[in-house]
């Protein structure tokens, strides 16, 4: 797909990998609109990257997605590309031994992590694909997964959510390819973003870097570059592309 003039809807584009991807897509000549929960961030984004649309939306809420998609379709008619990027990193083991006994993974954290990282992908994709089907648009769905989908100790909910994202990628590719809709995923390894620095201690980061064959963290623009390349390659479909410096080999 040539991205020039294509309409791209991206979730979680205010910060981090999403923001880097917005910039790459705009440079390619795409018409980008961002859904994000961060209202202030959206206003700043619209000022900093002229031409980018900004719609406030909590992508984990069915009602909010329905409202925001209504607004999007009124303005843009139909997206050619959806990038499901919004997500939160959450870390907690299944059980934790404490001086007073045993603590189990908090159910609220489990539900929240699944809602933002997995249910959001289901909600956004069903809304966008319905419109693609009714307008016979041959588009691309890009899901941002993670190398944690393979199972990361201390990240039950996050790993399960991302494994679910990979499964949806394969399932939807099988269902939608006949209609000319490709479904693909990018699984970043540990990438240098504010959220990584906040969520992961210096010690864990050092230890992680030592396990990466390239001995460094990824850069946001490298993930953005992979998103663009995967969209542009019309024969890439149904697969999850790990962009992780060789962490998972």
């Amino acid at each position: 797909m040539n991205l020039t003039g294509k309409k791209v809807l991206l979730t979680g584009g205010v910060r981090g990998l999403g923001r880097a991807t917005v910039e790459k897509l705009v440079a390619k000549g795409a018409t980008v609109c961002v859904f994000d929960i961060d209202t202030t961030g959206l206003t700043e984004l619209a000022q900093q990257v002229p031409g980018v649309g900004a719609i406030q939306c909590d992508v984990s809420s069915a009602d909010d997605v329905a409202r925001a998609m209504g607004q999007y379709h009124e303005q843009y008619r139909c997206a050619d590309v959806l990038v499901n990027n919004a997500g939160i990193l959450s870390s907690a083991p299944l059980v934790r031994i404490t001086p007073t006994g045993i603590e189990t993974h908090d159910i609220n954290l489990w539900n929240k992590t699944l809602a933002i990282n997995l249910t959001s992908v289901f909600l956004m994709t069903s809304a966008v694909v319905s419109r693609m089907v009714t307008t016979r648009t041959r588009g691309v769905i890009v899901n941002i997964s993670s190398v944690s989908a393979g199972g990361n100790a201390g990240q039950s909910a996050y790993s399960a959510a991302k494994a679910g994202v990979n499964a949806l990628t394969a399932t939807w590719a099988k269902e939608l390819s006949l209609l000319g809709i490709r479904v693909i995923a990018i699984a970043p390894g540990f990438t240098e973003t504010e959220s990584t620095k906040q969520a992961v201690s210096e010690q864990v980061l050092k230890e992680t870097i030592s396990r990466v064959p390239l001995r460094r963290l990824g850069r946001a623009e490298e993930i953005a570059q992979a998103v663009v390349a995967a969209v542009e390659n019309d024969f890439f479909n149904g697969k999850t592309w790990a962009v992780d410096g060789g962490l998972v080999i």
């Binding site: 089907v133 009714t134 307008t135 016979r136 006949l178 209609l179």
Partner: peptide
């Protein structure tokens, strides 16, 4: 079936 018809008859069907 839709795709086979579109390919077989060289047309594009509306939704």
């Amino acid at each position: 079936l839709v795709v086979a018809i579109e390919t077989g008859y060289g047309l594009e069907l509306t939704f």
